[in-house]
Design a protein around this nucleic acid. Sequence first.
DNA 1: TTACTACAACTTGTATGATCTCTGATGTTC
DNA 2: GAACATCAGAGATCATACAAGTTGTAGTAA
Lengths: 238, 238
Amino acid sequence: MDEIFGKIGTAQTLSQKIERRIEEAIRQKKLLVGTKLPSERELCEMFAVSRTALREALRRLSARGLIQIKKGSGMFVSELKIEDAIESLNLYYDLSFDSDLISQIIEVRRVFEPEIARIAASNRTDEDLTALNKNITDLADCDPDNTQLEADIINKFHLNVAKATGNKVMIISMEPIYSLLPRMRNLIYANVDGEKDFTIKAHRAIFEAIRDKNGEQAYQEMAGQIDRTLEIYTQYLK
Amino acid sequence: MDEIFGKIGTAQTLSQKIERRIEEAIRQKKLLVGTKLPSERELCEMFAVSRTALREALRRLSARGLIQIKKGSGMFVSELKIEDAIESLNLYYDLSFDSDLISQIIEVRRVFEPEIARIAASNRTDEDLTALNKNITDLADCDPDNTQLEADIINKFHLNVAKATGNKVMIISMEPIYSLLPRMRNLIYANVDGEKDFTIKAHRAIFEAIRDKNGEQAYQEMAGQIDRTLEIYTQYLK
DNA sequence: TTACTACAACTTGTATGATCTCTGATGTTC
DNA sequence: GAACATCAGAGATCATACAAGTTGTAGTAA
């Protein structure tokens, strides 16, 4: 218990208090999504604070994705998007990125993604298939020199597999990891030749297994694909 | 490619531009953790903007946990805590918390945690064992009426298993999920009797498997434990 | 010298008023 | 009715002033 000397006069700033008040209102659904908030001037009167303090509170709320501010028209309560929620996680990963992290990421993918593929195979919708298929044709059409685009497409494919599970939590868990892959790929792909054909074939195999609702096959193909990735990375990292 | 007519004057506000600039500097480690930023006035001169715009940018950065602002002393680059990153996720979950989410969380745990236990069994250190063991004795000693504390301890156990993998990414991935469990448990535990003994026994079995470096056993025990959880929840939710 | 006090020189927090710019609606012209 | 011009209201930015917290230091008394 080293809370003994914890803050007494927390000295929450005025703008923080305002922020909390509005946040609470949104959390408790007293302010519904889409609602237009009163104008700055009106809110100033209602809270009896200066525009400075109020605006800073609003800035923070919009930074967190709770409200949307449209210049010239007003401020609206917005639906908190998954992307907003994930963004700070992405940042967190970004800041702790190092070569250690690379092998750890691969390990996590090796363990999680085959299982994800299995679930995707049984839950996928036709829309999911369309998206996945598009990823593969995009990959095939992609300029071989444009490794950046290539990496993006591959990421989308894997993210779409996660989406095909129909499980939001799955997406949230994996998204931050996928967002790091381009950085890893840039590190490596420049050094590997004749990789692309193999990559396309492997991803198509995953796609087909998911399409055929063959969970076990999807699991195996995904595992194989990541094993191969792992191989390449260890070869490069050693 | 319908990017042809994509936004040109994205109309990023001034404060957003400032925010990005500082954020980039932090991301690229040009500003290290602990660094004291120049004072508001100095930054105003450097960026050639008004204090209002600058302050709004700083407010957003502090809202996101990238900097810490201390009245009277200054602004400092702060280490982005995982808790900060998770907070917006929590808010997201908070706003979309429903029985759907609960079952999705369990599904994710059912898939991920047994694998985590398996890896933990081969990578665990003696310190990990000590921590896990303490969790179990704490659980046994815990006042049966204090379901909140009970839930906390169980969470710590699972988090410690993740830690025992020695894989940071594993921890970060699971952390947001674990942070939701207390809420779920509060929903349920009040309605289940004679559960505690079983819970202790199950967790002890997991512990022993990890202790003995028996990966397969750890996998099975963890899977069984979560299956049991799933059973309880479906029973309650139906 | 030492310990305490008081103050000066910082820092961020809040308030106010003026001005700029964008948006949406209204009115005008053809 | 459609295209254009106008205008009111919204947020965005700026400049200034003052309030209030923090820190270091010079000065004072023991």
